Measured scan of single mutants.
Amino acid sequence: NQASVVANQLIPINTALTLVMMRSEVVTPVGIPAEDIPRLVGMQVNRAVPLGTTLMPDMVKGYA
């Protein structure tokens, strides 16, 4: 099963992502693939992302 990117903490709206904010986990539904974590660093979320939430492509500005 493919691992997805999951929020390791509450990520406030418009926050630029850092490695410490994300972890990989096998979840359903599948979100952004864990191998894209390096690409996500520095990108901003367009909404608040609660701890444990799977990051979906539409949550990250410029990802989709």
Rank of each mutant, 00 (worst) to 15 (best):
N1C: 14
N1E: 15
Q2W: 07
Q2I: 09
A3H: 10
A3R: 02
A3G: 11
A3V: 09
S4M: 04
V5K: 00
V5C: 14
V5Q: 01
V5R: 01
V6P: 00
V6H: 04
A7Y: 01
A7N: 03
A7I: 11
A7S: 08
N8P: 02
Q9Y: 12
Q9T: 07
Q9M: 13
Q9R: 05
L10T: 07
L10A: 12
L10D: 12
L10H: 12
I11L: 10
P12D: 14
P12Q: 11
P12R: 03
P12V: 12
P12S: 05
I13C: 04
I13Q: 10
I13R: 05
N14G: 10
N14L: 07
N14P: 03
T15Q: 06
T15Y: 10
T15A: 05
A16W: 09
A16Y: 08
A16H: 08
L17I: 10
L17H: 00
L17T: 01
T18V: 05
T18Q: 03
T18D: 02
T18N: 02
L19T: 08
L19G: 02
L19R: 15
V20A: 09
V20S: 07
M21W: 04
M21E: 02
M21N: 09
M21K: 04
M21Y: 10
M21I: 03
M22R: 00
M22L: 09
M22E: 00
M22F: 13
R23Y: 12
R23Q: 03
S24T: 08
S24M: 11
S24V: 10
S24H: 15
E25W: 06
V26S: 15
V27N: 11
V27G: 03
T28W: 03
T28R: 01
T28P: 03
P29D: 15
P29Q: 13
P29L: 15
V30E: 15
V30C: 06
V30D: 14
V30S: 11
G31N: 01
G31M: 05
I32C: 13
P33W: 11
P33C: 13
P33I: 11
P33A: 15
P33E: 04
A34T: 09
A34N: 10
E35Y: 05
E35F: 06
E35D: 05
E35P: 12
D36K: 11
D36E: 09
I37N: 03
P38W: 14
L40G: 00
L40I: 11
V41F: 10
V41A: 06
V41R: 07
V41I: 12
G42A: 11
G42C: 08
G42K: 03
M43P: 00
M43H: 09
M43N: 15
Q44P: 05
Q44A: 13
Q44C: 02
Q44S: 09
Q44H: 05
V45P: 04
V45W: 00
N46W: 09
N46H: 12
N46G: 08
N46R: 10
R47C: 05
R47M: 11
R47E: 08
R47S: 10
R47K: 11
R47F: 09
V49R: 04
V49T: 06
P50E: 15
P50H: 09
P50R: 11
P50K: 10
L51I: 08
L51T: 14
T54A: 14
T54Q: 04
T54Y: 07
T54I: 10
T54E: 02
L55G: 00
L55Q: 00
M56K: 09
M56A: 13
P57M: 09
D58T: 13
D58Q: 08
D58N: 06
M59N: 10
M59E: 05
V60Y: 01
V60C: 02
V60L: 06
V60S: 01
V60D: 00
K61N: 10
K61G: 04
Y63G: 06
Y63C: 02
Y63F: 15
Y63H: 03
A64P: 06
